[in-house]
């Protein structure tokens, strides 16, 4: 049967419900907005100029990508070893650990962020515990900070990293480890020269997923960052649902979309060049 006929229903849905809305948002971003007149159907680059000439927006974009980068680094540092250990566990411990590591992915981000709010607040679990132990005299502020957002986002994102690395590890032929051992390699050498390089594609693709999801995350920065620590997604939300300046919000969103796509494409290019011939 014709593949396009089989795909036609889904294709129609995507055409109407994805392609058209995205194009409309793109067009919207060129319109202007009046406080009393609402959306004016003019056509110009003024929204983009407004965003690109205002330090306020640079700060927001800068913060967003800095947070995403920090989350990615943390996920690499803690997610990669977890995937290695997972790979080497015995079957039943592994199945329990899989539930613990991957299960939270199925719990709503709102609920998980609520948990972090309870942990990170000035009167929260962590501060109370540290003060009870006498390690802190006054609470260490973690709510409404970028640091707090990073920690909570790392929790949300790290399962993706573990999954990506673990998938790469499962594609490895375990005999390569035995081969390295028979050639005289020590455990640390085997890890550094045989296991880690083979896991590298997983680490790189996991990093890309974590980075792009973090850069466009909304719920966690919104609840932990509050009104003060804004990121791109929360700014777009405010423009749409509070200020009602939809064209400006659309322009910010389009810039985010383009930035994320550019980073993805560049990253994939670099990775492909790096591993040409190795992992097809």
């Amino acid at each position: 049967m014709n593949p396009f006929l089989l795909s036609a229903p889904a294709l129609a849905l995507f055409g109407v419900m994805l392609v058209v809305p995205l194009i409309m948002t793109f067009i919207l971003s060129f319109h202007s907005f009046g406080f009393y007149t609402g959306i004016e159907f003019t056509f110009g680059l003024h929204n983009y100029i407004d965003v690109l000439t205002d330090d306020y927006f640079y700060e927001i974009f800068g913060r967003t990508f800095a947070i995403a980068l920090a989350v990615t680094v943390i996920c690499v540092i803690i997610g990669t070893p977890m995937a290695f250990f997972l790979q080497r566990m015995r079957a039943w411990t592994r199945s329990i650990m899989v539930l613990i590591v991957l299960g939270p992915l199925l719990v709503s981000v709102v609920v998980r962020t609520l948990g972090w709010m309870i942990l990170l607040g000035n009167n929260g679990v962590i501060n109370s515990a540290l003060m009870d132990m006498g390690l802190l005299t006054s609470p260490f502020r973690m709510m409404y900070t970028s640091g707090g957002i990073v920690v909570a986002l790392a929790h949300v994102m790290v399962p993706f990293m573990v999954l990506a690395v673990w998938a790469a590890l499962q594609r490895q032929d375990p005999a390569t480890i035995a081969a390295a051992e028979s050639l005289g390699a020590r455990r640390s050498t085997i890890f550094r020269r045989v296991v880690l390089p083979q896991a590298m594609p997983g680490i790189l693709s996991g990093s890309l997923i974590v980075f792009s999801l973090s850069a466009s995350s909304f719920a966690t920065p919104s609840l932990i960052g509050g009104r003060r620590v804004k990121v791109v997604a929360t700014t777009v939300y405010d423009e749409f649902l509070n200020t009602l300046n939809w064209p400006l919000g659309a322009a910010i969103a389009i810039i985010l979309l383009v930035a994320v796509l550019v980073i993805m494409v560049t990253w994939n290019r670099v990775v492909e060049r790096q591993f040409a011939g190795v992992f097809q």
């Binding site: 005999a175 390569t176 035995a178 390089p197 992992f279």
Partner: peptide, 10 residues
């Protein structure tokens, strides 16, 4: 080895 166990990244 039966699977040769060559290091794919080298």
């Amino acid at each position: 080895f039966q699977t040769y166990a060559l290091f794919p990244h080298m």
